[in-house]
Design a protein around this nucleic acid. Structure first.
Length: 918
RNA sequence: GGGUGCUUAGCUCAGCUGGGAGAGCGUCGCGUUUACACCGCGAAGGUCGGGGGUUCGAUCCCCUCAGCACCCACCA
């Protein structure tokens, strides 16, 4: 075993061993505990957000496994329709070809190739992160079994009338040539123009002025709308306009939707290319004129000159032509919400098409009820508000995509366009008695990726078969994910789970924050501010990091700026922190907040923690030279650290059970560093290295070192799996006990270690004594190596007893060379002073300490006491306080006042004495 | 327009159902004490965003203002 903590030397080794030994599979005994992974894109890589979620999931899984639960973490990946197809299309583009040249079958083959080639990345990353998933159960959303589930669900929903075909406006991506759902469209403010056009009336010498951000769609206008109460235009309602350029006659209609305050109060209505206009069109039975083709270029429904033009080209042409006709009234700058496809970045076009829809209202009703009743609980609870908000306003879900990569829709068309839905062509034929000579063609479209994701909790467990896994692990216990996919995924899983299994898919939904960079910016490749979790684990040199961050920029001009920032932030690249440090950092960031900022300082801190634990263990190992035997007697320090450990176990367990990994980590950090290392290890030294110490006490210390360290490693294991395994195995070897792994050990329980109020009080006294001497030392700049004489004054019998029993500790930890008891009335020498209760710890000046400096030091302490005392006395002299506050609060306040007064006068006396000398 | 969060030490963040605020990093002293300089010991540093209210008492509850962030939505 290396004498330094070098995580990369052993982390992978342990993972391989665990996996080979099949420790990750369910044990088959205990209460079932299951988490399904949010399936990442099979061709993607894990980013910081994934690593965060995985750290939490694995901690939960390991915690429950150690508690004896029958634990399954179900892994797998998602085919990620659009995202994956785009990647492969870009590859083809680089080869100067495209999918149409290849043909559908070859293209899909090509995607599978890419999947096989890159699909192992995620699994490798997960292994490096220590994820204890059951790899034997790994699933992919397009596995044959899972695809069958997709078909089954589609057919059943269709048979019930919950899936239907609709002809309506959808969000169309003219570059990808597919419909996308509302959720896949991101609207953002962009600067735009607002054009004002004059539309002449057909039968009067008048005109209406309309304002629009989309001049080109005027070629598809079928009305102009005004507000019914708008007196300016009331007389024109029902009149007719001759639409410029197109020449068509269109009516002026009245509609409440129009805001008279905005623009001119007249709105051009293009029902085929705007969602609001679509509704107005419906209300007024207006014709819908589609003027675009799939590329959003103008089609044959517009005058010849515009045909074939791209929508943006057409825009400038229309503006120019209207201007030429003298119909352009003006142009204003305007910020508008521009809808873009989140995948391609293209401006989405409202477009009339036939698509498949899920009627979500009935499904949503049950899903709302499940959260209302508490069958599904959100953690933190307030995310349920977000959920309700969306569910109460849910729209039907457009599930068809005009892509090639995905689950083919199980619908067939005959030559008349009649639609048949079934599990396969054969079923369709027999169900509808379609003779073999009638040619059926399957719907070319595929399903939205999220359709199969919605089935994930039960499809991975074997549904619709009644498998033992389904029986045992469904409903799963908790879903761990980020809030960004509550609508996309969480809500839909609840709807589908309830619909098809009659039960919720998970009991709890733990929502964690979004990982941002240290400045609070969202990490994104196009911004060049990402951190790769693997780089934090393995380390990366500066040049590679710069190269990595600048390779996928949205705007290449930013390269120098990003390079500069990166070089400034990571002047030496990133050191190899190891998985454990990364996981502990994530655990510590798992607060209830929305966002977490990732700061290198924190991971550095947890790396140091691992180092500290490592070194403390080395000390323990060294002490356990030979296996302890013989009589065992526990010292007060042993009893104290055991009691402290018991408290730590209770705190940690409670924290994990309530998903407060930050508090769990904090509690473990605090105990390990500041109780175990700072005090307990030091307290064992006098015992273990002392000359006249009873062997039984030495055995007690050794046994305690081994037991406390063992328990501590187990407590830490769910969060820091590797270093704890490495140290655990070494510890077991030292103690001569065999163990194959820490991960199957029982998680410690608070009552494994005795509470001990007496030991706690005694060690607190001891610590105060030692700290008192150290304070004087520190503030007087006395070398820690210099032994000091101490005189005690104003002590009690209890103090005498404490010093008698703990003299050895005091001598060693406070570096005290002698302790003298001043008799009452005996004159104390000039000295530096600390108070311990009523007792004064005195360190005689003896040429070491400057009296004036000590006077000044005590003066500061007194000043503090005085302000505290003032506050307390103010409170006590307030009659309303003493009358209304609970008696115990008043009593405590009185006690505080007495104590402060005491301390003040003691310190004042000491100053007096020093003045006499000075 | 609707909704949800956030604002605590120089930085990143805790603070559990109201009783004089904590950690890590950073800063400043001292230090070769046999696990650890990836360390030890000590110290400094906060009007808990502003204002108001409830209460004997507010970082915590209520109102309000300001700033920041995010989500939903269809002002052309």
């Amino acid at each position: 075993m290396s004498s330094d903590y070098r995580p990369t030397e052993f982390e992978q080794r342990h993972y391989e061993r665990w996996e080979q030994a099949n420790y990750f599979a369910p044990s088959g005994t205990g209460a079932p505990y299951c988490i399904v992974i949010p399936p990442p894109n099979v061709t993607g890589t894990l980013h910081m957000g994934h690593a965060f979620g995985h750290a939490i999931k694995d901690a939960l899984i390991r915690f429950h496994r150690m508690r004896g639960d029958d634990t399954l973490w179900q892994p797998g990946t998602d085919h990620a329709g659009i995202a994956t197809q785009i990647v492969v299309e870009r590859m083809l583009e680089a080869e100067n070809t495209d999918r149409h040249a290849l043909g559908r079958e070859k293209f899909v083959e090509r995607v599978w190739d890419w999947k096989h080639q890159s699909g192992g990345t995620i699994a490798r990353q997960m292994r490096r992160l220590g994820d204890s998933v059951d790899w034997s159960r790994e699933r992919f959303t397009m596995d044959p079994e899972l695809s069958r589930v997709v078909t089954e669900v589609f057919v059943r929903l269709h048979d019930e009338g919950l899936i239907y075909r609709g002809h309506r406006l959808v969000n169309w991506d003219p570059t990808l040539h597919t419909a996308v759902s509302d959720l896949e469209v991101e609207s953002a403010e962009e600067s735009a123009k607002l054009w004002h056009f004059r539309y002449p009336l057909a039968d009067r010498n008048e005109a209406l002025v309309v304002a629009t951000t989309r001049p080109e769609t005027m070629l598809g206008d079928t009305a102009v709308a005004v507000h019914p109460d708008d007196s300016r235009y009331a007389h024109l309602i029902g009149e007719t306009i001759r639409l410029p350029l197109a020449g068509r006659l269109i009516p002026i209609v009245a509609d409440e939707h129009v805001d008279p305050e905005f623009g001119t109060g007249c709105v051009k209505i293009t029902p085929a290319h705007d969602f609001n206009d679509y509704e107005i069109g419906q209300r007024h039975s207006l014709p819908m004129i589609n003027i675009f083709d799939d590329d959003a270029a103008l089609n044959e429904n517009v005058p010849e000159t515009y045909r074939g033009m791209d929508r943006f080209e057409a825009r400038s042409r229309v503006v120019a032509d209207l201007d030429a006709l003298g119909l352009l009234e003006g142009i204003e700058d305007h910020t508008a919400m521009i809808p873009r496809c989140e995948r391609s970045g293209a401006i989405v076009e409202p477009y009339l098409t036939d698509q498949w829809y899920v009627d979500t209202k009935p499904l949503a009703k049950a899903a709302i009820a499940a959260v209302e009743s508490g069958d599904v609980r959100f953690v933190p609870e307030n995310w349920s508000k977000t959920y309700f908000e969306w569910m109460h306003n849910i729209q039907d879900w457009c599930i068809s995509r005009q892509l090639w990569w995905g689950h083919r829709i199980p619908a067939w068309y005959d030559h008349r366009g009649e639609i048949y839905v079934g599990r396969d062509e054969e079923e369709v034929r027999s169900k509808h008695a379609i003779p073999p000579d009638v040619v059926l063609a399957q719907d070319p479209d595929v399903l939205d990726t999220w359709f199969s994701s919605a089935l994930w909790p039960f499809s991975t467990l074997g549904w619709p078969e009644e498998t033992s896994e389904l029986e045992r692990f469904y409903p799963t216990n908790v879903l761990v994910t980020g809030f960004d996919i509550i609508f996309f995924w969480v809500a839909r899983m609840i709807m589908m789970g309830l619909k098809f299994t009659g039960e919720v898919p998970f009991r709890q939904v733990y929502i964690h924050g979004l990982v941002r960079d240290h400045e609070g910016q969202k990490m994104s490749k196009s911004k060049g501010n990402t951190l790769d979790p693997l780089d934090l684990i393995e380390g990366i040199d500066l040049e590679s990091l710069v190269a990595k961050r600048t390779e996928a920029l949205m705007n290449p001009d930013q390269k120098p700026a990003i390079e500069k920032v990166t070089r400034a932030e990571f002047p030496d690249g990133i050191p190899a922190y190891g998985t454990d440090a990364l996981r502990m950092t994530f655990a510590s960031l798992a607060t209830l907040a929305r966002d977490v900022r990732f700061d290198l300082g924190r991971i550095d801190g947890y790396h140091r923690f691992c180092n500290k634990l490592w070194n403390a263990s080395q000390y323990v190992f060294a002490q356990l030279g030979e296996a302890p035997d013989g009589d065992i007697e526990l010292s007060v320090a042993d009893r104290w650290i055991r009691a402290k450990l018991s408290e730590c176990i209770a705190n940690t367990t409670t924290a994990i059970e309530s998903y407060r990994f930050d508090l769990a980590t904090q509690s473990l950090y605090e105990f390990t560093w500041h109780e175990f290392c700072d005090w307990y290890l030091e307290l064992t030294k006098p015992i273990l290295t002392g000359d006249d110490v009873a062997p039984s006490l030495q055995q007690g210390a050794k046994a305690t070192l081994a037991e406390v360290l063992g328990a501590l490693l187990k407590l830490l294991h769910p969060i820091a799996p590797f270093v704890t395994e490495e140290l655990w195995l070494a510890l077991r070897e030292k103690t001569g006990q065999s163990s194959e792994t820490i991960m199957l050990e029982a998680y410690p329980r608070a009552d494994d270690f005795a509470a001990d109020a007496e030991a706690l009080a005694e060690v607190e006294w001891l610590k105060s004594f030692i700290v008192g001497v150290r304070k004087i030392r520190g503030e007087m700049n006395l070398s820690p190596s210099r032994p000091l004489p101490v005189k005690l004054e104003g002590y009690t019998e209890e103090d005498r007893k404490q010093v008698a029993t703990n003299g050895l500790y005091i001598e060693r930890l406070a570096r005290v060379e002698s302790i003298d008891w001043l008799e009452p009335g005996e004159k104390a020498p000039g000295a530096a002073t600390e108070l311990l209760g009523d007792m004064r710890i005195l360190i005689p000046l003896a040429g070491l300490i400057d009296a004036d400096k000590e006077i000044e030091r005590l003066g500061k302490q007194i000043a503090k006491l005085v302000t505290d005392l003032e506050k307390t006395n103010n409170k006590l002299s307030n009659e309303r306080f003493t009358r209304n506050a609970p008696p115990e609060v008043v009593a405590r306040e009185r006690g505080r006042a007495d104590e402060l007064t005491q301390r003040r006068s003691r310190l004042e006396q000491q100053i007096e004495k020093l003045r006499e000398i000075a």
